[in-house]
Simulated scan of single mutants.
Amino acid sequence: MHSAFGYFSGSESFPVQPKELHEKIATSGTCSDRWHLAGRDDLSLEVMAILAQDSDPEVRSGIAMNYLTPAGILALLANQHPDLVPPISIHTNAPPTLKELAPILWQTDESIFQYLVDKGATEEESTELRKLHSRLTRQHLNQIRKAQKNVPPDEVPYMEPPRAPLLGDAWRSIHTEPSNDATPPYSPQFLNDAAHYWEHWSK
């Protein structure tokens, strides 16, 4: 399991689930079996697509947080289940329009790199966004260190990364050239729902 996001990143601790039985488990296995299946790192795209349509929210969440889930399935999950926007929008494979709904400091360096590739960022834009990400990270770490002073280790409060600025806002602050970016295919209601779920979600 990924230490930062709780993303599944291996099948070593999962029950034995032979690859030839994955589709059968996905369609008719128990909820527990389907949930374990959703976290595996050897799933086919077909099985991932089946699990993304599962009736159980824990199974869908498992697919949303599987580090191998591709952009298309993540986009489908987010559109159908806005409550999954927070974990999906910080997924390395998420479409850039979904990543833009997440605070920049909740993105990993790998996710930022892939975002810049997907956006076709210039070298200057890539440098500026990475510098901003690094500066905000240092500020957050300094705040944590300050809070830790003269406090017993077991009493240090958890300080999650700030929820502003959003990655999309940060990008628009440096992307000053006329943009050919497509309008995000999200309705105002979807954006409101996404903001609501981000407000009440934490790692």
Rank of each mutant, 00 (worst) to 15 (best):
H2F: 09
H2I: 11
S3M: 13
S3Q: 09
F5W: 12
G6C: 03
G10M: 03
S11Q: 14
S11R: 09
E12H: 12
P15A: 04
V16H: 14
Q17I: 11
Q17M: 08
K19I: 09
E23A: 13
K24L: 10
T30H: 10
S32W: 05
H36P: 01
H36I: 02
L37D: 04
G39D: 10
D41W: 02
D42E: 09
D42V: 05
L43C: 09
L43V: 09
L43P: 14
S44C: 08
E46K: 13
E46A: 04
V47K: 00
M48H: 01
A49H: 05
A52H: 06
E58H: 11
V59Q: 03
S61N: 04
P70M: 03
A71H: 11
A71F: 01
A75C: 15
L76F: 09
A78M: 03
N79Y: 01
N79I: 03
N79C: 14
Q80C: 14
L84W: 02
P86E: 01
S89M: 10
I90P: 00
T92E: 13
P95E: 01
L98G: 14
L105E: 10
Q107H: 10
D109E: 11
E110C: 08
I112S: 08
Q114V: 06
D118G: 01
K119G: 00
E125W: 00
E125A: 00
T127F: 12
R130A: 11
L132K: 10
L132M: 13
T137I: 12
R138S: 07
R138T: 15
L141K: 07
N142R: 03
A147L: 11
K149Q: 10
P152N: 02
P153L: 06
V156Y: 05
V156F: 05
M159N: 07
P162G: 03
R163P: 02
A164Y: 11
D169V: 15
D169R: 06
D169E: 07
A170P: 04
S173V: 07
I174G: 01
H175L: 11
T183F: 12
P184E: 11
P188C: 10
P188H: 08
F190A: 03
L191S: 05
Y197W: 12
Y197I: 06
W198E: 04
W201A: 07
